[in-house]
């Protein structure tokens, strides 16, 4: 099993069973350390569906955590290119 899959599984368990001050920092760390962690967007959707209430129920884009994850990944893509940790 790849590192990303293991991370996604662990985050899913954390989201279902642990308080927000455990799974939110864990999600943030996963986004920071795993390149292009698009699975985090789905995890953000899960957090919004399980624990949030949307301003406009039904078909909408009002998912604050999913949107936050998307924006963070978009910001990190060019940053990673410029920082270049790997040779």
């Amino acid at each position: 099993m790849k590192k990303r899959d293991i991370a996604t599984l662990i985050l899913l368990i954390l989201i279902l069973a642990f308080p927000y001050w455990v799974y939110l920092p864990a999600l943030l760390l996963a986004i920071l350390f795993l390149p292009m962690y698009w699975e985090g967007i789905f995890l953000g959707f899960l957090i919004d569906v399980f624990y949030g209430a949307r301003a406009h129920p039904g078909l909408s884009l009002s998912y604050p955590y999913a949107l936050g994850v998307l924006l963070l990944i978009l910001v990190l893509i060019p940053l990673r290119e410029h920082l270049r940790f790997d040779a």
Binding site: W38, I41, F42, F45, L46, D48, V49, G58, L59, S60, L61, Y63, A66, L67, L70, I73, L74
Partner: peptide, 13 residues
């Protein structure tokens, strides 16, 4: 990523 977000918004809605 935008495609993933829109797909997710549809599915989860």
């Amino acid at each position: 990523l935008l495609g993933v977000f829109i797909f997710g918004a549809l599915v989860f809605s």
